[in-house]
Design a protein around this nucleic acid. Structure first.
Lengths: 203, 203
DNA sequence: GCTATAATCTTGACAGTGTCAAGATAAGTT
DNA sequence: AACTTATCTTGACACTGTCAAGATTATAGC
């Protein structure tokens, strides 16, 4: 307990949560070590007991972001078990919605704010696990003849790249107006996924 | 001439050039209004005569980046006129090489550092012109039966998304090691483009 | 239970940043 | 030649990441 701020108890996680909230509420421009400390109610230097520098805090926030993304994808998968085609579409949609709904944490995860990602083992682990989720779906789709035979991880990389690229361009508003006026983003996604598919995928 | 720094002559473009150089030499972390001013040999506030704030300078640097990308793509196109299939592959490669060789300017262009891109007309213009380059190639490919019939701008968006996503994941080192060990990036690119193609594309 | 040690948090400082206001300098216009 | 405007400098402010020194509390060994 304690009104005292000394030995908060779980400041590390509180700082990560504060960071996630700042990203959601105020955006990436407001994410600073000091703002995170303020929101957690501790002094501006307190974070240094838990994070050696800003990059390390960002790595922890990114890792939390991947945990959330993983969870969304997992839910999408479980909603359509034994229907790999639907699983694939649902994953794509979940990825897209996550990016659009949580713009700024998605940006932190994928836009190079984190500079040496390989140095943060927890980050590497959860990001790879997320990819493996997709590999599994792709494999199931191949077995059912929905996707062509091809090296599974290569195909999974291609599909991930496809969805990720679309989402990134959409976030940066680089997708032409005429395209988005004529076709809602869901439809664009479906169109792109269907380039890979042997049988037509639907929503 | 003049040793005097007053009325430099073309400070605006000098600042943009300085920014591009800083991105190439030192990376995005070193890009500040003050570092750009230092490199151009003027005082820390001099940029404010030409850019109302940092975002406006970044918009100008991004615009310059798009000009360079446009030029690379245009060269790739002209190297294979009357062979749309090869043009498509060459464009994809040029896009990839630009991103990998000029990491940090590419990041500035596409990673949300620029926040209200729509407010910078020159930026909008060149980025749309770049997209139109791709639309043209896709259209030519469709006419030759290399790409399926489909709304051209939708197909072009899908293909751009594909290449952009691959490149982004590669830049962030998110593409799995096992994939990149087994398949060089050029091959991954070709594999993905071939998902769209009716006839096999080669390098 | 007491004490030594380690972990955690605060305070205060430093250099670097974006931005603004006031003033100096030079170019262009009449 | 004088006035006006664009351009550049100087100096200031609040904010940032980071570090050093010290205060507070938890923990481990006795």
């Amino acid at each position: 307990m304690a009104e005292s701020n000394y030995h908060h108890g779980d400041l590390k996680n509180a700082l990560i949560a504060a960071g996630v909230e700042i990203l959601a509420r105020e955006g990436i421009a407001s994410l600073s070590l000091r703002s995170v400390a303020r929101r957690a109610g501790v002094s501006h230097s307190a974070p240094y007991a838990h994070f050696s520098d800003k990059q390390t805090l960002i790595a922890a926030i990114s890792t939390e972001g991947f945990r959330r993304l993983y969870s969304k994808l997992d839910t999408a998968l479980n909603a359509h078990s034994a229907e790999p085609g639907r699983q694939l579409v649902a994953c794509g949609q979940a990825y897209m919605r996550f990016a659009l709904n949580e713009r700024d944490i998605f940006k932190v995860m994928f836009s190079g704010v984190l500079e040496q990602e390989k140095e943060y083992p927890e980050f590497v682990e959860i990001s790879q696990a997320t990819f493996q989720l997709l590999v599994k779906v792709v494999d199931a789709c191949q077995e059912k003849g929905i996707l062509r035979p091809a090296p599974t991880d290569l195909l999974a990389t291609a599909i991930w790249g496809q969805v990720h690229g679309l989402v990134s361009l959409a976030l940066e508003k680089q997708i032409s107006h005429t395209v988005l006026d004529l076709h809602p983003l869901d439809e664009v996604l479906l169109f792109t996924l269907n380039q890979f598919s042997q049988v037509p995928l639907t929503l």
